[in-house]
Design a protein around this nucleic acid. Structure first.
Length: 508
RNA sequence: GAGCCAUUAGCUCAGCUGGUAGAGCACAUGACUUUUAAUCAUGGUGUCCGGAGUUCGACUCUCCGAUGGCUCACCA
């Protein structure tokens, strides 16, 4: 490693009392900065290190111990715990996917290097070369014959045994959370694997991954309040997307036939253990398919992902056993509401009778709610949270489904289903509305709702109607919340546990 | 947006009925060449979240604020 020839001259910054900050008064911080200053003064500034010839990882050393025993390896990582016993020491080196114990002794390293090693701190990043062996107590280890400080850690890490528990700090300083809480790292590795397997599954089936605008002048494709931003040179307000749906269906019109997008949506709504203002949506469209096909597709997709990523379709979410293997139950909203409440909405013919029926069982509804809105309210209030094993809930009212084909047999309902697991919605799919005249009417209906004060009603998208006028094949569409899927697979209680950097208030 | 709860050393947490604070880890010094939450001895950790008030005296009581958590609302 090259060292700067002028290294002997610099003075420690904090030696000047004028720029001594309050923070540096802390004993531990001061000592670590002093150690760094000492290294600099001796021409050994660790921050001049630019590379290290790493040729192995800690997990590989464990996995292939039999063939690596007695062989030299070169690894690098963070010192996470130390047991110094005079002229010999052990420490744990953590790298990206594991840790290994390192044995450092003065006669292997030489006096100078060993003394430098003893001055290193927990949290320092080092590279080392040594031989793989097993200790008397049986622990796979590396006997170091060279250790190089690659970066100095100037702050003490959170406690080694209890880790970092303060939830606020864990989210705001996720890097610390990742350093000291191994299960957090596992969750995000799992998240990456889920996405990789999802893409593989779709690739095998001939889907094209596409990217559509996040920034636009119409926020369509869902019922939600958008974030508003401003473009300076165009001098116009723009929206962050709430769903990619209308763009993806334009691509179906364009003849791409099988497309999907995995990307961020933004909704200007409340934050909860199930909601983050930005979240990752997966939407897929396949021409010449309907929602029945999509049910088979979803069953296969989720159970395949579980098998590939978790090795099983039998999982436990927050203590509740869930079986993800196909087939899943399929039941209509009408059936499920009748099962749960005894009320058969199919036989209710007027909006007023529907409202009275809901009120009779104590479900709160708006005074002008229509039959379909009431049915949906009752479903959400009395059914959704009770569906623990994977269930396709089928045929939602037309009022809440402005982009979905109506059922040929019942114009009050649409060919739409939701995927419910553990009482939560994981996805939604439908036979896409491709009738431009009907679509325009639905947009106009939504526009009336907007004017009546419903900020979540869909915005009119004239160009989307124009696209449909050129002809869109019958198409099955699907949307799945990736964050919630990761929560399910990782057994995470809060959405924030599967987002590396969840949305937080700014500290004042 | 509402209610409840929390905030004390770098981290994890104690702190009684109001008398200006403790432990473990981490850190420092010393001992120790197979330890693994290493051990042993010695030592110092501090804007008690911020501000105001009550009081002779506030970590402790009251009010205001900040941040977070939970529940609810919102959110298909």
């Amino acid at each position: 490693m090259q060292q700067d020839p002028q290294a002997g001259t610099p003075l420690p910054d904090h030696a000047d009392p004028v720029i001594l900050t309050e923070e540096e008064l802390n004993e531990i911080l001061t000592i670590r900065r002093d150690k760094l200053a000492d290294l600099k003064a001796r021409g050994r500034d660790p921050f001049w290190q630019v590379l290290y010839p790493v040729d192995n990882t800690t997990s590989n050393i464990h996995a292939r111990f039999d063939e690596l025993e007695g062989k030299p390896v070169s690894i690098a990582g963070r010192i996470m715990s130390r047991r110094i016993m005079g002229k010999a020491s052990f420490f744990d080196l953590h790298d990206r996917d594991g840790k290994v114990q390192v044995y450092a002794r003065i006669d292997a390293l030489g006096e100078e290097v060993y003394e430098e090693f003893k001055k290193m701190d927990l949290g320092d990043l080092v590279g080392l070369q040594g031989e793989v062996f097993r200790t008397h107590k049986g622990e796979i280890s590396v006997k170091a014959n060279e250790i190089t400080l690659l970066a100095k850690s100037l702050r003490p890490l959170p406690e080694k045994w209890h880790g970092l528990k303060d939830v606020d700090l864990r989210y705001r300083q996720r890097y610390l959370d990742l350093i000291v809480n191994p299960e957090v790292r596992r969750t995000f590795i799992l998240r990456s694997r889920i996405l990789r397997e999802l893409r593989g599954f779709l690739d095998e089936r001939g889907f094209l991954e596409v990217e559509t605008p996040i920034l636009g002048t119409i926020a369509g494709g869902a019922n939600a309040r958008p974030f508003i931003t401003h473009h300076n040179t165009l001098d116009m307000d723009m929206f962050l997307r709430i769903a990619p749906e209308l763009y993806l269906k334009r691509l179906i019109v364009g003849g791409l036939e099988r497309v999907y997008e995995i990307g961020r949506n933004f909704r200007n709504e409340g934050i909860s253990i199930k909601h983050n203002p930005e979240f990752t949506a997966f939407e897929l469209y396949e021409a010449y398919r309907d929602y029945n096909y999509m049910m088979d597709f979803v069953e296969t997709l989720i159970s395949t992902l579980a098998k590939k990523v978790l090795g099983t379709t039998t999982i436990t979410y927050q203590g509740t056993p869930i079986e993800l293997a196909a087939p899943w139950r399929r039941a209509t909203t009408l059936q499920l509401v009748q099962e749960a409440t005894g009320i058969d909405f199919d036989l209710i013919e007027t909006h007023e009778a529907a409202r009275k029926a809901a009120q009779s069982i104590g479900v709160h509804i708006k005074p002008d709610a229509t039959w379909g809105l009431v049915l949906n309210e009752v479903y959400e209030a009395r059914v959704e949270h009770t569906l623990i094993q994977p269930t396709f809930v089928i045929d939602f009212p037309v009022e809440i489904s402005p982009l979905t084909k109506k059922k040929v047999t019942d114009a009050r309902l649409t060919e739409r289903f939701e995927v419910i697991i553990g009482g939560r919605e994981y996805g939604c799919a439908y036979s896409e509305l491709n009738d431009p005249i009907d679509q325009k009417e639905r947009f106009l209906d939504q526009a009336r709702r907007r004017e009546a004060g419903d900020e979540e009603a869909n915005m009119m998208d004239e160009d989307f109607v124009t696209a449909l006028e050129y002809g869109m094949p019958p198409t099955g569409g699907l949307g799945i919340g990736i964050d919630r899927l990761v929560m399910l697979f990782a057994d995470a209680y809060s959405i924030r546990d599967v987002l590396l950097f969840p949305t937080m208030k700014s500290m004042k």
